[in-house]
Design a protein around this nucleic acid. Structure first.
Lengths: 186, 186
DNA sequence: CGGGTCATGTAAGTAGTTACATGATTGG
DNA sequence: CCAATCATGTAACTACTTACATGACCCG
C-alpha cells in the first residue's frame, strides 16, 4: 500500500466510482496515469479493500464501478495516524531559473509566462470546483469542509506561484523598458 | 539526459563541486538521494559533459570534484529552449486532508501542525540562504539575481503553505473553543 | 477525417527509494 | 557511546511514465 493507493481509497470512501472517475478526481492533487491506477485498484480489490461491479453502457465503453469495503475504511482510518512525510516537488522551472543567466531575456520571459499560464488554468479549475461547494457547507462539521480546505490548498499554492511569476516578470520587463528607446506611456 | 541531470549540470555550471556538494545544493529544490546522483554524474562524465579529479583529504574521505565542460554548457543552453513541463507535486497531506472527516479533530490538528513545522524549518533555511546574497547583487544583470529569485520562489511557496496551515488550524481550533466549557480569556 | 473524450487494460522502460558497504571525526 | 556529518559507491526494489491495444462517438 503506497500513498497513491490510500489516495484512491480516500476518493472511493466518499462515493463509489470507476477507475477513470477517480483518475480525473485525483489528477489536480496527485499526478497519476491510468496505467498506474488500474492495476492498483485491481490489487486493492484482491486485498478486500474494494469491491466492484460492471455497468454496461451503450454508445460508451462499459464501466467498472469500485466501492470501498469496511476493511478499506478501517485501513484508511489507521493511515490517518501514520507519520506525515514531507511533500515532494519536482519542478523543472527551479532548475531553469538557476541557469537563466545562460540564456537571453526574451527566453527567460517566455519560460516564466508559460508557467504563469499554467497557474491561471489551475486557478480557473479550482475556482470552478469551489463553486460546487455550497457556502453553508464550508464550515467545520460538514464533510464538505474538507473538500473546501483542500481546494483552498490548491488555490493558496497556485496564487503564490502566480504572484512569483508576476514579480519576476516585472523585474525582467523593467529592465527591458530601461533599455528600450521609447518609454511606454503610464 | 533527464531533468535531474540538467539540474546537476546547472549547479556545476556555476562552480565545480563534488557529488556530495551538489546533492546538498539541489536538495531544497529537487529531492534526490546520493544513490541516484553519483551514477548520473559518472554517466555525464562519460558523455563529456563533465570532467573530474580527486582531492585527497586527511581526516575526511577523499573528494571527487566535477567541472562542467564546454559541451556541458552547450547542452544546458539548448535545454533552456526546450518546452517547460508542468511541475509535479506529490503531497500526502492533500490525500489526508480529503479524509480528515474519518479521524478526530486532535489528529487533524496534529497533522496540520506537522506540516506547519516543516514550512517553518524551510523558511528558516531559505532566509539564511537569502542573507548570503548581498543586496547590491539582487538586481537584473547579476548572476546572483537568479539565485535571489530562486530562493524567493521557495519563500513564496513555503509562505503560502504556512498561511494555509494557520488558516486551517484557526478553523479547527475555533470549533474547539466553542465546544470547551471554559472560554479562553482574550 | 483527425483529434479529443470516454473507458479499460498490459508491457516495457525510466526514475527514484531503500538498503548494503566502508570508515574516520566530532558533538552531545 | 551513539548519532550525525563527510564522502562515494552498488544492488535491489518500488513508483511512475510511455507506448501499445481496442473501439465508438462527437466536434470542428
Amino acid at each position: 500500500m503506497n500513498t497513491l493507493s490510500y489516495g484512491l481509497l480516500a476518493f472511493l470512501a466518499r462515493e463509489p466510482g470507476s477507475g477513470y472517475d477517480v483518475m480525473l478526481k485525483i489528477q489536480p492533487f496527485w499526478q497519476a496515469k491510468h496505467s498506474q491506477i488500474y492495476p492498483l485498484l485491481a490489487q486493492m480489490e484482491e486485498n478486500d479493500l474494494l469491491t466492484s461491479y460492471w455497468i454496461k453502457q451503450s454508445e460508451k465503453p462499459d464501466k467498472k464501478i469500485y466501492s470501498i469495503t469496511d476493511n478499506g475504511i478501517r485501513k484508511l482510518k489507521e493511515w490517518m495516524y501514520m507519520p506525515l512525510p514531507d511533500p515532494v516537488t519536482r519542478d523543472e522551472l527551479s532548475m531553469k531559473t538557476f541557469c537563466m543567466w545562460l540564456t537571453d531575456r526574451d527566453n527567460a520571459i517566455e519560460i516564466v509566462e508559460t508557467r504563469k499560464a499554467y497557474f491561471t488554468r489551475r486557478l480557473e479549475s479550482f475556482n470552478t470546483k469551489l463553486q460546487n461547494v455550497p457556502e453553508e457547507k464550508r464550515a467545520f462539521g460538514n464533510r464538505e469542509f474538507y473538500d473546501y480546505i483542500l481546494i483552498q490548498k490548491g488555490i493558496f499554492n497556485a496564487t503564490a506561484g502566480q504572484d512569483w511569476c508576476n514579480w519576476v516578470l516585472g523585474m525582467l520587463r523593467e529592465q527591458q523598458a530601461k533599455e528600450s528607446p521609447i518609454q511606454p506611456v503610464q
